[in-house]
Structure formats: structure tokens, C-alpha cells
Simulated assay, not measured.
Amino acid sequence: MPDPHETLLGILEAHFGIDRAEVNPSVPLTALELDSLARAELALILRDRLGVALTEEDLPEGATVRNVLDLLAARMEEAEALRAGGA
């Protein structure tokens, strides 16, 4: 299973030009200059990379990096449980 933290940092760096050193768990996405369009794009990229569906409501204006990581971890666990249950 991919590491959501490294995946998120890689996406923020590669797609949005955000230096990893600027990213800490408590920083809001808006402080990283991710407006609603950028957050929607982030959700799509995360879905493609991690197979985790996120909506605009999952990444509201006040969401922090920690909120995103917690949500990713929960969704990835849910998906893993579904796969294990169906195996």
C-alpha cells in the first residue's frame, strides 16, 4: 500500500510547486495557496494515485494537511477491508 504522506508531499511538490519544507500537518491547504480549484485537482490526483475517492466536501477551505492525511488513511483502510472481505 502506498504511503499517503509521501504521496501527498510528492503531489504538492510536483503538481503545485510547494516545497516539502513548507508543509507540516497543521498548515491549512489555503495557506499553501490551494484554492477550491486546486483542492479539487488535488482530490483527482489522489484518487488516481491512491485509488481513494475524495469530494470537494472532503477538502473544505479550512482543511489542514493532517485532515487530508487522516481522511486518506481512513479511506485506504476502508478499501483494504472491503478487498479483504471480498477475497
Score class of each variant (00 low, 15 high):
M1C: 04
P4M: 00
P4I: 07
T7A: 06
L9M: 10
L9P: 05
G10W: 13
G10D: 12
L12I: 10
A14C: 13
H15P: 11
H15T: 13
F16I: 02
G17M: 03
I18F: 15
I18W: 14
I18D: 12
I18H: 13
R20E: 02
A21R: 04
A21P: 05
P25N: 10
S26K: 15
P28T: 15
P28L: 12
P28S: 15
L29E: 12
L29Y: 10
L29R: 07
L29W: 12
A31G: 14
L32P: 09
E33S: 14
E33G: 08
E33H: 15
D35H: 11
D35M: 03
D35R: 01
A40H: 03
L42C: 00
A43H: 04
A43E: 03
D48F: 15
D48Y: 12
L50C: 15
T55A: 04
E57N: 09
D58A: 04
P60H: 09
E61L: 14
E61T: 12
G62C: 00
V65R: 10
V65D: 12
V65I: 14
R66A: 10
V68Q: 00
D70R: 02
L72W: 11
L72M: 06
A73L: 02
A74L: 04
E77N: 13
E77M: 14
E78N: 00
E78S: 05
E80G: 07
E80L: 08
L82F: 14
L82Q: 12
R83G: 07
R83P: 12
A84P: 07
G85A: 13
G86T: 11
